[in-house]
C-alpha cells in the first residue's frame, strides 16, 4: 500500500501492483547475479585446477640423466591438497618412496621457460612453443591490425549502402564463426603449398598468415562498430572545413575509433593464441628442439605442446601441461593489459 495520498484525478481502474512489479525486478536482478556468479565460479574452478596442478607438493627422488643428477618426481599432489594435509602427505612419501624427499615443486620455473621439451618431465621446458607462439602472434597482430582496420574504413566510409555492401557485411560476420580448421586447410593450400616460395613452407610466416585470415573477420566487425560509433557531427564539422573524405577519416574518425579497434584486435589475438587445429594442419610440429631462425622456419606453438603433454600416459606430464597453461594465460593477460593501457592513452570523451 502506498504511503502517499492518491492523486485525485486518478481513475479507479489503475491497479498499481507496485509490490509485484518490484518483486519481478528483484527476481530479474537475482537471475543476472546468478549468471555472474556462475561465470566467476567457472573461471575460478579453471584457475583453481590449473594452479593446483602447476604448483605441486611432490615426492622427489634423484636420477642420473646424461651424466648429471636430475630430480625425478615420482608422485605429485595438488597445491591445495598439500596446504591442509602436509603431514599426511609427508608420511605417505616416507612410506611409499623412502628414497624421496617431500617438498614443494613448482613446474613453472626458470628452466621451464628456457629448456626445450624433453622425455623427462623434470627437464622439459616450454621454450620452443613459447617463442613460436610469440612470433606467430606478433606477426599476426602486425598484419591483421592494418588490414582489418583498412577494410573496415573502406566498408564504412567509402562503401555504398547498396545490396552488395549488405552481402559483404553478412559474409564477414559469418566468417567469424567458421571453424578454425577450415582456415587451416585454406592456409595449407594457399600459404604452404601455393605461396611456398614466399613463406618457405610450413613456417611461422605461413602460420601467421593463416592466423591473420582467422582474425580478420573479428577485427573488421569490431572496427566497423567503433567507426560507426563516431558521431556524424564530427565528420560534418571536418568536412565543412573543406577537408577531403580521407583527411576526415584519418584525423578524426580513426583516432576516436581506435580504442574499439584495439579491443577487437586483442579479442582476435586471444583467440589466435589458443588455436591448435589450423596450425597443425599447416604443418606446425610438436617436438622442436631449436629456436626458429626467423619467420621462415619450422615452429611449434603452446597449445599444441600442451595438448601433447595432456595425452601422454605419465602423470607428471599433466602437471607440465598445467604449467604451460599458466604461461599461456599469463601471456594473454599481459596482451590484454597492454591493450588496456593503449586504450586509456588514446581514449577521448565526447
Amino acid at each position: 500500500m502506498s504511503s502517499l495520498p492518491t492523486p485525485k484525478n486518478r481513475e479507479a481502474i489503475f491497479t498499481d501492483r507496485l509490490s509485484a512489479r518490484k518483486r519481478r525486478g528483484m527476481i530479474f536482478r537475482n537471475v543476472c547475479l546468478a549468471m555472474t556468479i556462475f561465470g566467476v565460479l567457472s573461471l575460478g574452478a579453471l584457475l583453481y585446477d590449473t594452479i593446483g596442478s602447476a604448483f605441486t607438493w611432490a615426492a622427489v627422488e634423484e636420477r642420473e640423466v646424461r651424466g648429471r643428477v636430475q630430480p625425478n618426481v615420482v608422485q605429485t599432489w595438488s597445491l591445495w591438497e598439500g596446504i591442509y594435509n602436509r603431514d599426511e602427505l609427508q608420511r605417505l612419501t616416507a612410506e611409499n618412496y623412502p628414497e624421496a624427499e617431500f617438498r614443494f615443486f613448482s613446474w613453472v620455473n626458470i628452466n621451464f621457460l628456457t629448456n626445450f621439451p624433453s622425455r623427462f618431465p623434470e627437464l622439459s621446458g616450454f621454450r620452443s612453443p613459447l617463442i613460436g607462439s610469440l612470433m606467430v602472434i606478433g606477426i599476426t597482430a602486425l598484419l591483421s591490425f592494418p588490414i582489418g582496420t583498412g577494410a573496415a574504413i573502406f566498408l564504412e566510409e567509402y562503401g555504398t549502402k547498396g545490396w552488395i555492401s549488405r552481402i559483404i557485411e553478412t559474409n564477414i560476420a559469418n566468417l567469424a564463426g567458421v571453424p578454425s580448421i577450415i582456415y587451416g586447410l585454406l592456409g595449407l593450400t594457399i600459404f604452404v603449398r601455393g605461396a611456398g616460395g614466399l613463406t618457405g613452407g610450413q613456417t611461422v610466416l605461413a602460420g601467421a598468415f593463416t592466423m591473420t585470415l582467422l582474425s580478420l573477420p573479428i577485427i573488421i566487425v569490431a572496427a566497423r562498430e567503433s567507426i560507426r560509433a563516431v558521431p556524424p557531427s564530427q565528420r560534418q564539422a571536418a568536412l565543412a572545413l573543406g577537408a577531403t573524405r580521407w583527411e576526415t577519416t584519418y584525423s578524426h574518425v580513426l583516432p576516436s575509433a581506435l580504442p574499439g579497434i584495439l579491443t577487437g584486435t586483442i579479442l582476435a589475438m586471444s583467440r589466435a593464441i589458443g588455436e591448435t587445429a589450423p596450425l597443425i594442419t599447416i604443418g606446425a610440429l610438436t617436438y622442436v628442439a631449436f629456436d626458429p631462425s626467423g619467420a621462415r622456419d619450422i615452429f611449434t606453438v603452446m597449445p599444441i605442446q600442451i595438448f601433447n603433454w595432456v595425452t601422454l600416459p605419465q602423470a607428471t606430464f599433466h602437471n607440465l601441461a598445467s604449467a604451460g597453461i599458466v604461461v599461456l594465460l599469463s601471456i594473454l593477460l599481459t596482451m590484454n593489459g597492454i591493450a588496456i593501457v593503449i586504450r586509456r592513452k588514446t581514449e577521448r570523451t565526447w
Binding site: 646424461r66 622425455r119 597443425i280 617436438y287 622442436v288 628442439a289 611449434t300 601433447n308
Partner: peptide, 20 residues
Amino acid sequence: QAMAEEFGYLTSDVQIPVGV
C-alpha cells in the same frame, strides 16, 4: 621424440623436429 632428443644431445648441428 626420445630418440631425436638423445641424438640431438650427441650432435650439435642436427635438427630433428617431430610432428603428431
